[in-house]
Design a binder for these strands. Structure first.
Length: 200
DNA sequence: GAATAGATTGTCT
DNA sequence: GACAATCTATTCT
């Protein structure tokens, strides 16, 4: 299958809300040892530190975990949540701005059998990649992907067809005060792989 | 179909 | 020592 050229650094170097929206429809590719796996991004969220209290980079805090967000764009920010699930983010915006795009759901395209084996569910199940923890498990992403450069590594974005994009508030960030209501979640309208479709 | 509880560990206070 | 950008199984209607 022809996946086209990978996206270059300038795609990620724009304002994080623009990047998050533009990621919808793009193809996330992982050239894993077991084989190529890829899926269309159908749901994302933007996190814009240091002012965004929902972001791990809130208040400009630099720690071992958030360090990569303060570096150049197009790198992978991985983090573990609830002690058992990994989540994948793309660092966006100019260097020095701790912004990131959380990829929340994929429509499986390539290597579906590999994903199914890693997830332990049937290959045609819609639950293969419809959530941050699920897509990381399906693509084989974990701590070892932390800090990978999407412009040079085995993990990258490729062009893809985009449908209508909807936006809604972000999910499970109830601790973030006024930032809870920001409509910084983007999704492809009508796509059945979106984790929690808002009313359209 | 909707709601709820339990799992399990790196990171930060 | 508390808690988290979640998922799944189980227990209700």
């Amino acid at each position: 299958m022809e996946l086209g050229a990978r996206l270059l650094r300038d795609f990620y170097e724009r304002p994080v809300l623009v990047v998050a929206r533009d990621c919808i429809g793009k193809v996330l590719v992982h050239e894993a040892p077991e084989g190529l796996v890829a899926g269309r991004i159908v749901e994302t969220e933007a996190y814009r530190g240091p002012e965004d209290l929902a972001a791990h980079s809130a208040k400009g805090r630099i720690t071992e975990r958030t360090r990569v967000m303060f570096g150049p764009p197009a790198h992978a920010y991985m983090f573990l949540l609830y002690g058992m699930h990994w989540a994948f983010n793309i660092v966006a915006g100019p260097e020095g701005h701790p912004h990131a795009v959380l990829v929340r759901a994929l429509e499986p395209l390539v290597g579906v059998e590999i994903m199914a084996a890693r997830r332990g569910v049937p290959a045609k199940s819609v639950t293969l990649c419809n959530g941050p923890g699920k897509l990381c498990a399906a693509l084989g992403l974990d701590r070892s992907a932390y800090g990978l450069d999407l412009c040079t590594g085995p993990l990258y974005l490729a062009p893809g067809e985009r449908g209508a994009v909807g936006r809604s508030p972000r999910i499970n960030i109830d601790y973030a005060g006024a930032w809870v209501k920001k409509p910084w979640r983007f999704h492809e309208r009508g796509n059945r792989y979106v984790s929690v479709p808002p009313r359209d």
